[in-house]
């Protein structure tokens, strides 16, 4: 068994080998591998005893279950109207400048992927993005450049980065 297959097996063990656990298993793979490789999807099919086409068909329905190669950090820029009005394009431009990639592309180092996405639910703090699961809001070109800088520096030091959202009880 390859490393990926073992991961899939472990996830299937954890969640259970039933169709209803397909999404959690796929989410678990994406969390670790950043996207779903063919190998991983075939292993999921084996574990749940469903066809590989069903795994792919289901995964491809959900925008967070990427089946194309993605970097370690997936940047999703909200393109819905509130963020659009508040300068989403300037944020994309800033990211493109720093990472030297266009929307839809992944850096050569496989560290970042830049995507657009639909409403993230931060319209009052637009423009907003997600980097993997962490939201960043009220962005300006300067702010996003600083955030990316942190990621690049911290990635070298392997530290976890926490977003800027505070929550209370």
């Amino acid at each position: 068994m390859t490393e990926v297959q073992e991961k899939v097996r472990d996830l299937s063990e954890k969640y259970g080998r039933r169709r209803e656990n397909l999404l959690p298993i796929l989410q678990g793979i994406v969390e670790k591998e950043h996207y779903l490789t063919s190998e991983a999807m075939i292993q999921v099919a084996k574990e749940l005893d469903i066809s590989a086409a069903e795994v792919y068909g289901t995964a491809s329905f959900y925008s967070f279950l990427d089946t194309e190669q993605r970097g370690q950090y997936v940047i999703r820029v909200c393109k819905t109207i509130s963020c659009d009005m508040k300068g989403k394009n300037s944020i994309i431009k800033a990211i493109e400048d720093v990472l030297k990639i266009k929307v839809g592309e992944t850096t050569q180092s496989k560290m970042f992927t830049l995507l657009e996405t639909n409403c993230l639910g931060w319209c009052h703090k637009a423009p907003a993005i997600l980097i993997n699961d962490e939201p960043y809001t009220n962005l300006t070109p300067a702010k996003i450049k600083a955030i990316l800088g942190d990621y690049i520096r911290n990635a070298e030091g392997k530290q976890k980065i926490i977003g800027d959202i505070q929550y209370e009880r």
Binding site: S51, E54, G57, T67
Partner: peptide
């Protein structure tokens, strides 16, 4: 057999095979 399934969504939805 499930060799084919619905893949993608919205305007890109199509009937296709595994990957």
């Amino acid at each position: 057999v499930n060799a084919i399934d619905v893949v993608h969504k919205g305007k890109d939805m199509i009937i296709s095979t595994f990957v």
